[in-house]
């Protein structure tokens, strides 16, 4: 089938518009982070690295970055440990309860972050007040927040590889559960795990609403600190936004590379 020139031009215009729509705000943020002054002109008057140095020298910058990185790491670990075994067991036992779990996993999505945070504070305020204002409660809240993302990423990966058949094939090959997990299950869902980890980490790292409600200033995360900075200096806020983007991109790159280095991406076999 040949595509006419007109259609190709239209497609290029559409694609170009989409790229501009996505990239322009990022470019503008980066420029604002480097601008001395940018108020009445189309482009910044001059460029400077002052805001970057000022941000880096700020004592809370390194501390909040470290906290948010740790929190994001813990959140994806907790979610993977919760979700992967549950979904694997459901897949190999062909459990009838999965639709219920599917629905339950969507609850954090359906609920606004503020409501989730308030519910957590009210609940733990009654049953375990010692957890209030602690990073533990924030970790639990972020784990719940990222759970749907992790759940659906792993579930889609499991559906794509038809785990039930692979599990039975491994059993008839003489493999026991630990061997099946190590040689069959985990290598075949590592792409889904990497995607889940990236998305889960990003959800935690960039969350402001829940973190602000649950711990606020008592255990400052990078996003909450960003919120405070926004009211003080827009240029430093722009720098922190760029940092946030860079951290997310680096994490994505590292996790995808890790997934690739552990073997080739499994693909569904073709017939014929």
């Amino acid at each position: 089938m040949t595509i006419s020139r007109g259609v190709r031009v239209a497609a290029l215009i559409l694609l170009g518009s989409l790229v501009l729509y996505l990239v322009l705000p990022l470019l503008a943020t980066l420029l604002f982070a480097l601008a001395t002054r940018w108020t009445t002109t189309i482009l910044p008057e001059r460029l400077t690295a002052t805001w970057i140095w000022q941000t880096i020298r700020e004592s809370r910058f390194a501390e909040t970055i470290r906290r948010s990185l740790t929190l994001g790491g813990v959140v994806i670990l907790v979610d993977l440990v919760l979700v992967v075994p549950a979904l694997v067991v459901m897949a190999v036992t062909r459990s009838r309860w999965r639709p219920l779990l599917d629905a339950a996993s969507l609850v954090p999505y359906a609920m606004p972050g503020v409501v989730l945070a308030l519910a957590l504070i009210r609940f733990y305020g009654m049953v375990f007040p010692a957890l209030l204002n602690t990073p533990w409660l924030l970790g639990a809240a972020h784990a719940a927040l990222a759970l749907p993302i992790v759940y659906w990423a792993i579930l889609n990966n499991l559906k794509a590889i038809n785990l039930y058949d692979l599990y039975e094939a491994a059993l008839t090959c003489g493999a026991r559960w630990p061997q099946i997990l190590r040689f069959v299950v985990l290598p075949n869902i590592r792409t889904g795990m990497a995607i889940a980890a990236v998305a889960g980490f990003t959800a935690s790292f960039t969350d402001f609403a829940v973190a602000n409600f649950v711990v606020g200033g008592s255990w400052l995360t990078f996003s909450v600190w960003q919120g405070y900075v926004m009211h003080q200096n827009g240029h430093i806020m722009a720098v922190t936004s760029v940092v946030s983007l860079v951290v997310t991109m680096v994490t994505t790159f590292l996790l995808i590379r890790l997934a690739r280095e552990t073997g080739p991406a499994p693909r569904t076999a073709r017939g014929g």
């Binding site: 590889i161 058949d165 075949n188 073997g263 569904t268």
Partner: peptide, 8 residues
């Protein structure tokens, strides 16, 4: 029937 080869 589905061959069930390990894709990895």
């Amino acid at each position: 029937q589905s061959w069930a080869l390990f894709p990895n």
